[in-house]
């Protein structure tokens, strides 16, 4: 299991060719209380950087981008029904979707936890 982060405040837990993707605790805290989550449909093929999900806090909507290319193979319906799960457990039960990586090596270049912590200060 490999843990990686992006500059756009997403985390990826990579297990073989499938990555579980969510938003970081820092992002969840900055956004504040989430009231709406829109997830992609299973089977959606994503390019790196493509808009894949939308999160809305009380104040504003934010896009979530695909950290790497791949195909959506699972989504977390629980956070659609109860967006507060993302605020409570952003890096565990608040996961967004699972991505079958187009290229298993594509995630290796992303930041590790130490580099991400340095980024957010």
């Amino acid at each position: 299991m490999l843990l990686r982060f992006t500059e756009d405040h997403e985390w990826l837990k990579i297990d073989g060719e499938v990555a579980t993707v969510g938003i970081t605790a820092y992002a969840a805290e900055q956004l504040g209380d989430l009231v709406f989550v829109q997830l992609p449909e299973i089977g959606t093929t994503l390019d790196k950087g493509q808009e894949v999900a939308v999160v809305e806090s009380v104040k504003a909507a934010s896009d979530v981008y695909a950290p790497v290319a791949g195909e959506v193979v699972a989504i977390n319906e629980e956070i659609v029904n109860d967006p507060s799960i993302v605020n409570a457990n952003p890096e565990s039960s608040g996961w967004f979707y699972k991505l079958k990586l187009a290229d298993v090596k594509s995630a290796e270049g992303l930041m590790d936890e130490a580099a991400y912590k340095e980024l957010i200060g």
């Binding site: 997403e10 992002a27 900055q30 956004l31 104040k59 504003a60 934010s62 896009d63």
Partner: peptide
């Protein structure tokens, strides 16, 4: 995702 940068 882009985080609202209002606080900065």
């Amino acid at each position: 995702m882009s985080i609202d940068a209002k606080t900065s």
